[in-house]
Amino acid sequence: MECVFGLVGDGFVIVASDTSAVNSILVHKTNEDKIMKLDSHKLVAASGESGDRVQFTEYIQKNVALYQFRNGIPLTTAAAANFTRGELATALRKNPYMVNILLAGYDKETGPSLYYIDYIATLHKVDRGAFGYGSYFCLSMMDRHYHSGMSVEEAVELVDKCITEIQSRLVVAPPNFVIKIVDRDGAREYAWRESVKDTPTAQPEALGV
């Protein structure tokens, strides 16, 4: 029941994701961060098979860093999105990655941007986007309440509405979400929305063993 969504505001992009690591009917973690920082001004939020998601996003992160190391300049957000799309397209004909991506970034020349990239290498620049079962509710909420030039406060309020809708509508809803933002000051974590916290595994002596 993964949920990843994001939107472009006035000078920033905000992305949010659930933090549940699940396999079939089992929940392994409720604090898995699915939004990776590509570089100082880029974020990639991913959903899909856990192994593919981690491996592919790390592969993109390292190659973006390698390009900057070799050339002395970072990739633009559009260039990083096209590189990501190219790698997915290449893998599609060999051993596909089951991963869907929202790539957010901020460039001095063009400002904030958000790119939608799915597992079959479809690429679109969007103002708002979502993946997962929660997208049914997020997209409808954003269609109703989103407008261009939103402030950070308005965007966070809309994100919270989406999270509330997901948690009240989905039969098996993820309890926790992480929210991150990227603007001219860089990419950073904004907040966590927690209803369940992971607790350390009880030690044998605590169980009276």
Rank of each mutant, 00 (worst) to 15 (best):
K29I: 10
K29L: 15
T30E: 12
N31D: 13
K37H: 13
L38C: 08
D39A: 00
D39F: 07
S40A: 13
H41K: 11
L43A: 01
A45E: 02
A46T: 03
A46S: 06
A46I: 01
S50K: 09
G51H: 10
D52Q: 01
D52V: 10
V54R: 04
V54A: 06
T57Y: 03
T57R: 06
Y59E: 02
N63F: 15
L66P: 10
Y67P: 00
Y67F: 01
Q68V: 10
F69P: 10
R70Q: 09
R70T: 08
P74A: 12
P74R: 10
L75A: 06
T77L: 00
A78D: 08
A79P: 07
A81H: 07
F83P: 07
T84I: 05
T84L: 04
R85V: 14
R85E: 15
G86V: 00
G86N: 05
G86S: 02
E87T: 01
L88T: 01
A89P: 09
T90C: 11
A91H: 10
A91M: 10
L92F: 08
R93G: 02
K94W: 09
K94G: 01
N95Y: 15
M98A: 13
V99F: 08
I101H: 11
L103S: 00
A104C: 01
A104M: 02
Y106H: 03
D107W: 05
K108D: 13
K108V: 02
T110W: 03
T110L: 04
